[in-house]
Each structure stands twice: as structure tokens, then as C-alpha cells.
């Protein structure tokens, strides 16, 4: 991240351009929504644009493109835990808790 006033002055143009690009991507998201794409394609397109916009905010506005390794380390750990968190729904869908087993179903039928 720049702290030198001359370097910061050079970055101002980048901030403005990224701001404009984010607005353009927002317009593209809304236009893509008007096309009424099939749901899987619509989700893919919307999430690709959202990830692109998010990356621009993080890299440029939050200065992550040039940060110290301790920040990258903390964020890497966060991403690992976030991925685990996102997979929790799959675990709940695939588990057998609450699903009657063949033996218990037979026992109920016997009563």
C-alpha cells in the first residue's frame, strides 16, 4: 500500500477507473437479468460478475494487491474456514440423521 503522497496521487486515477468499471459491471448484471437466462446459467453469470467486482474492491480499494504477508496469512486462514463453512450444507443434505433406517421402519411396521 502506498503512503508516499506522490504515489497516492498516481493511484487516484486508478480509484476513479475502478469505480467506473464497478458501475459498468452493475449495469451488465442488471441487463443480463433482463435476458431471462436459464437458472443455472443466470447464477453462473451473476456470480462471476459479483466475484469480479468483489476482487476489484478488495485489490484496489482495500489495497490487497500490495499488502503485508501477515494480512495475506490471516485472509488465507479465513478463506479455508469459509470454504469449510460453505460445504456444511452439503454435509447436512447427505447425512442420514432423521432418515428412518430399514430396521427402525420394520420395527414401526411391527407395532
Amino acid at each position: 500500500m502506498h503512503s508516499d503522497p506522490a504515489e497516492v496521487k498516481k493511484s487516484v486515477r486508478t480509484y476513479m477507473m475502478v469505480g467506473a468499471a464497478l458501475l459498468v459491471f452493475t449495469a451488465i448484471t442488471v441487463i443480463a437479468n433482463q435476458l431471462h437466462l436459464a437458472v443455472p446459467l443466470a447464477i453462473t453469470v451473476a456470480l462471476i460478475i459479483a466475484v469480479t467486482k468483489g476482487s476489484m474492491v478488495a485489490a484496489v480499494f482495500m489495497h490487497l494487491s500490495a499488502e503485508k504477508k501477515w494480512i495475506y496469512g490471516a485472509l488465507l486462514l479465513t478463506v479455508v474456514f469459509l470454504i469449510v463453512l460453505m460445504f456444511v450444507p452439503i454435509l447436512t443434505v447427505n447425512d442420514g440423521i432423521g432418515t428412518p433406517t430399514r430396521a427402525s421402519a420394520g420395527a414401526h411396521a411391527g407395532h
Binding site: T26, T29, V30, N33, V39, A42, I43, A46, L47, I49, A50, K53, G54, V57, A58, F61, M62
Partner: peptide, 21 residues
């Protein structure tokens, strides 16, 4: 600023997820 950009970043994902999909 870092906090504020994060709040913006969250909305960037909330908008398509809730309003469009």
C-alpha cells in the same frame, strides 16, 4: 475505509443473490 469497502463488498454479493437469482 477498510471496514466500509467490506460493507460494499458484502452488498455486491447480496444484490444478485437476493434481487436477481
Amino acid at each position: 475505509g477498510l471496514y466500509w469497502h467490506f460493507v460494499d463488498l458484502v452488498w455486491i454479493f447480496l444484490f444478485p443473490v437476493l434481487y436477481l437469482l
